[in-house]
């Protein structure tokens, strides 16, 4: 039996292929270095993306700004849902990054996981950003399922220590800030492999400077 025959066996699948099907392209992150490390050459659209960071302000939002701006483009009409953000998303800065404020929806309240699931399942959003602890595996699993069925970018922000626990997310990224840039560590990437990228502050071209 040759290797090719083996690979055709239904019980075998390669990590590069997702369920036997070719990997769907993701949304370009806006950072060429990062795109090269991600299997779909960008943020995956089928499934949950976890971003693990212990501090707000190290560049975790700036990392997403290019893709969010792209999702506000002319041919897109989905909304950007911000669920339980730690602070108020500041409208002038968002506008300066090219985000259409008319499609920003900020949701606050206790039931962040529930609200995130609703937003994902509604089909109204093109991106859902959630800040939730997700203590139990059940809720993570629900979010992952909802994200798989929706066609939108689903990002869940958690703490670095949650990285040691298993998660059904398709992509897990740990962020570490430093004086000269942002350290992006890919902990898990379905169809890809672990990697580490350092994005210098210079590559954050989208500093929130108004036009």
């Amino acid at each position: 039996m040759s290797v090719d025959d083996l690979l055709r066996h239904p019980g075998l699948w390669r990590a590069r292929e997702q369920g036997g099907a070719a990997l769907r392209p993701g949304l370009p992150t806006g950072f060429a270095l990062l795109d090269r490390c991600l299997p779909g050459a960008g943020w995956p659209l089928q499934g949950l993306v976890e971003i693990l960071a212990d501090r707000n302000g190290i560049g975790e939002l700036s990392l997403l700004m290019p893709v969010l701006a792209r999702l506000c483009g002319e041919h897109e009409d989905g909304w950007l849902a911000w669920i339980s953000p730690p602070h108020q998303p500041y409208a002038p800065a968002l506008a300066a990054c090219g985000i259409d404020l008319r499609r920003v929806l900020v949701i606050r309240g206790q039931a962040a996981e529930w609200a995130m699931e609703q937003a994902l399942r509604s089909g109204a959003c093109s991106a859902v950003l959630g800040w939730a602890a997700c203590r139990d595996r059940q809720s993570l699993r629900r979010l992952q399922l909802a994200a798989e069925q929706s066609r939108c970018l689903a990002v869940l922000f958690r703490r670095l220590r949650d990285g040691s626990e298993p998660s059904p997310a398709v992509l897990r990224i740990a962020l570490d800030g430093s004086r000269d840039g942002l350290e992006v560590r890919i902990l898990k990437s379905r169809g890809g492999r672990a990697a580490s990228v350092r994005l210098g502050w210079a590559s954050f071209a989208t500093r929130a400077i108004a036009h």
């Binding site: 968002l94 920003v104 949701i107 109204a124 959003c125």
Partner: peptide
């Protein structure tokens, strides 16, 4: 639909948009 469902559970103030 999404907004009214969220508001029904989280309250009227919990969902808003932003503008300049």
């Amino acid at each position: 639909q999404l907004v009214e469902r969220l508001r029904a559970r989280l309250g009227e103030e919990a969902v808003h948009g932003v503008s300049l």
